[in-house]
């Protein structure tokens, strides 16, 4: 499903003294199968934009197209079917788990959408395998699980409605390094194996660099930069001006180029491979 924004404005409480324009003339395109990352400050308009993707908000003017579905200023009754196709994993989703068992939590979405419950139950083992949880968690209380596991339960609850687009708002916030790595590689595998379109909102620039193929930068409600992450991060100064940083490895590469004239580039190498590149460049420089 392709996602297209055309000249989208959104104003909270229009025509009132509290009116606040959160999105300003946003036009963008996310192709089917993309892994798109949205970056920007708290208050830059990220959450407002995300809420347009599954129809929680409608544009004040302009159009959002998600596959065949069109979201305009007018009310659309097909919104429930859109929400099935665009799954959202909110920030700290474990705060929204509430059922007695993991099974009932995962099946909440299908029940809510009026799906065939037998079929949904049948899919449980497959979904659990996809998110990397053992089947014996189904009868346990979600609150007995670790933070990383609870997050997997929340993701499973979205996957079971079989969405084409998966939106994740800060999916690794608060997880330890291992939990974070596991969630990021889970998202990678959903992207690759299930060919899902992934939309990631994050403060971790390293994750944008390593995982996404498109980056969108928002500032004060405007889309200020977009492109492949490596390209976007080349504009370090511009990002700094709007209070954002670039990944640490790119900062280091820039500094080594400037201070030492080392010809090092980023080509998705691991940190220790980057160390090797630096060592080799240093040796080559020394023999000049």
């Amino acid at each position: 499903m392709e996602i297209v924004f055309e000249n989208v404005d959104f104003t909270y409480q229009p025509n009132s003294p509290f009116s606040h324009q959160a999105l300003k003339n946003i036009s963008l395109r996310i192709k089917h199968g993309d892994y798109a990352a949205f970056i920007g400050h708290t208050g830059s308009g990220k959450s407002t934009l995300l809420q347009h993707l599954n129809g929680i908000l409608r544009p004040t003017s302009g159009t959002v197209r998600i596959g065949d579905f069109e979201l305009t200023t007018k009310k659309n009754n097909a919104i429930k079917s859109l929400r099935r196709k665009v799954g959202v994993v909110f920030q700290y989703p474990e705060h929204q788990l509430f059922e007695e068992t993991v099974e009932r939590d995962i099946l909440f979405g299908p029940k809510n959408f009026g799906m065939d419950m037998e079929e949904a139950k049948h899919k449980l083992p497959v979904i659990l395998e996809e998110v990397g949880l053992p089947t014996d968690v189904l009868q346990r209380s979600p609150f007995e699980l670790s933070g990383g596991q609870m997050r997997r339960v929340a993701i499973a609850g979205v996957l079971i409605t079989d969405p084409n687009v998966l939106i994740l708002d800060e999916p690794t916030a608060g997880l330890d390094p291992r939990g974070r790595k596991q969630i990021m590689s889970l998202i990678d595998s959903l992207h690759k194996k299930k060919r899902m379109t992934i939309i990631l909102v994050t403060h971790h620039m390293e994750d944008v660099l390593r995982h996404a193929n498109q980056a969108f930068v928002l500032s004060e409600g405007e889309l200020v930069m977009q492109g492949e992450p490596v390209e976007v991060f080349q504009e370090e100064e511009r990002l700094q001006d709007i209070g954002l940083g670039i990944p640490e490895e790119l900062q280091l590469i820039n500094q080594l180029q400037q201070a030492l004239g080392l010809p090092i580039t980023y080509h998705h190498q691991s940190p220790s491979e980057l160390g090797k590149d630096i060592a080799q460049a240093l040796h080559a420089g020394g023999n000049r």
């Binding site: 691991s270 940190p271 220790s272 980057l274 090797k276 630096i278 060592a279 080799q280």
Partner: peptide, 15 residues
Amino acid sequence: PLISSIYSGMNKHGV
């Protein structure tokens, strides 16, 4: 930390 990982890669290659 990332810097420590990068340094350990450099270290293995003689820096």
